[in-house]
Nucleic acid binder design. Structure first.
Length: 477
RNA sequence: CGGGGUGUGGCGAAGCUUGGUAUCGCGCUUGGUUCGGGACCAAGAGGCCGCGGGUUCGAAUCCCGCCACUCCGACCA
């Protein structure tokens, strides 16, 4: 009976993964739809996940010397058009402000889809000498891209992100920054979000408009499709030249600085959902779970149970665990299902029998036997359980990545192997024409040229010419 | 932006073919009984039937237009 009811609430992920995903987003109370297509409401529980991501990443950025700034939301059209490739990439999805009050504006303003141009305008004003470098700025904000279709977290018209924009005196330093920030993202995703990643470089076809190099961390979702977790760009001095940003070097000569930008967005939350979720709902990595432990008193009406449960809650909170208690009159089963749906890593049950024995019962969201924990030193024991959950989640995701990654030596192999989800590793000559053919004939895009290369063959299976790189191919979100 | 599907209390649906003023389940409120995996009984509240127009004495139902959501493509963090 209980199982039947679960099916009523949430679509089975093996039956319809996309419907499952939408169900989780709404039923775990992460998100709500608004009256504007593609603009979503982050509900408290969903926004809390983003806040936790922000706190951790923000501290990492600052540790490495970055400073937070806030730039305007509107970009004059003339400013946006200064870098040709950049405007070509973004113009089709810009939204424009054309009225100020009741008057038509002289020049229309783009609602920022990204802020490279604004940062450049500002950097031109504040960079004059080698002593002004590097500039390591980061901005937390929302950006707007008029997407044609939208899905919670994965594709919003307005989404939250951070964008780092840095300026450096030398190419080497800028390149090092690009790599460094990619590694910050990769480490964060693996250690905090329990999502294994593949670090690599994007092909020219897939790189950011205006960038010289785009680096990426690619993740595999539970259905074998790819999601870009974070991105880091090396711009060279292209923007600096377009925006006429110069500084006087130690040699008393004028130079253009070298630039980077890097970002992660709320799309990452979609990645968490699709990496870890199961048919009972969301599964959150303990390190970013808004509620790490839910305390559920059993037979609350019995003498002393509620008091004992509240005492347990206080003990956990004092130990720095994000714990909450459910004192509602819902049944035990309802509560169990509810917090599973919301992905709470650990549920602690405390009933009369436990109190008598001086223990409580822990249920891990990742499953397995329920654990009996002594109430003495319970916070330490719970922390260990949380660590175990974090570890189990990473290992499970890593298994999924390995089990669905395969070596391919022909277009057909990629097509057949990736159709049901999966990453194909295949050699590539480096020609965009072959990349286009892969899309047409195998239905896949290049995810990245991984830093960790493997020699699978000598030639590009598409054209037969000598191979330059091993590329990861897949179907992306 | 092309192709398909769907819009009926908060959620899921029935009703539409054959027009007659909206029904069921869940949820919600109140009271009671329960309480170790989605409890039960009783009494209640709640609906511009996506929006606009048309046909008609009368439209959730028929016709036209639009919008939104969703799935599959093209585009993207």
């Amino acid at each position: 009976m209980a199982k039947d009811k679960k099916v009523e609430q949430i679509t089975d992920m093996d039956v319809d993964f996309t419907q499952w995903y939408t169900d989780v987003c709404t039923k775990a109370e992460l998100i709500d739809y608004s009256s504007i297509k593609g603009m979503f409401i982050y509900r408290p529980y969903g926004y809390a996940i983003w806040e936790n991501i922000q706190h951790i990443l923000d501290a990492e950025f600052k540790k490495l010397g970055h400073e937070n700034v806030y730039l305007p939301m509107l970009i004059p059209e003339s400013l946006l058009q200064k870098e040709k490739d950049h405007v070509e990439g973004f113009a089709p999805e810009c939204a424009w402000v054309t009225m100020g009050g009741s008057d038509k504006l002289e020049e229309r303003y783009c609602i920022r889809p990204t802020s490279e141009t604004l940062f450049c305008e500002h950097y031109k004003n504040v960079i004059h000498s080698w002593r002004d470098l590097p500039k390591l700025y980061n901005q937390w904000c929302s950006v707007l891209r008029w997407e044609k279709t939208s899905r919670p977290f994965l594709r919003h018209r307005e989404f939250l992100w951070q964008e780092g924009h840095t300026m450096h005196a030398t190419e080497d330093e800028a390149r090092a920054e690009t790599q460094q920030m990619l590694n910050v993202y990769a480490d964060f995703m693996e250690n905090v979000l329990a999502m294994p990643v593949i670090r690599g470089r994007k092909t020219d076809k897939e790189k950011f408009n205006g960038a010289e190099e785009t680096y990426t961390v690619e993740c595999m979702m539970h259905d074998g499709k790819a999601l870009q977790g974070g991105t880091s760009h090396y711009f060279g001095d292209g923007f600096a030249r377009a925006f006429d940003i110069t500084f006087t070097g130690r040699d008393n000569q004028l130079h253009h600085p070298y630039q980077t930008s890097w970002g992660v967005s709320t799309r990452m939350i979609g990645g968490i959902i699709m990496t870890h979720g199961d048919n009972s709902g969301l599964v959150l990595p303990p390190k970013i779970a808004p509620i790490q432990v839910i305390v559920v008193p059993v037979a609350m009406h019995k003498e002393g149970v509620q008091e004992a449960a509240e005492k347990l809650l206080e003990t956990l909170k004092k130990a720095g665990i994000r714990a909450e208690i459910d004192l509602s009159d819902q049944s035990m089963g309802w509560k169990a299902a509810q917090y599973e749906m919301k992905g709470v890593p650990v549920r602690l049950e405390l009933g009369p029998r436990d109190i008598e024995n001086g223990v409580c019962v822990a249920a891990k969201r990742t499953g397995g036997e329920k654990l009996t924990l002594p109430l003495e030193n319970v916070a330490e024991a719970v922390k260990t359980v949380l660590d175990d959950v974090q570890k189990e989640m990473y290992e499970k995701a890593l298994r999924n990545l390995h089990d669905h990654t395969f070596d391919a030596h022909s277009v057909e192999e990629v097509r057949d192997g990736c159709a049901g989800g999966g990453f194909a590793r295949m050699m590539w000559c480096g020609d965009e024409a072959c990349e286009v053919k892969m899309k047409e004939q195998a239905g896949v895009t290049s995810r990245c040229i991984p830093f960790e290369q493997a020699h699978i063959g000598d030639t590009c299976p598409v054209c037969g010419k000598p191979a330059k790189h091993m590329v990861i191919w897949g179907i992306a979100y």
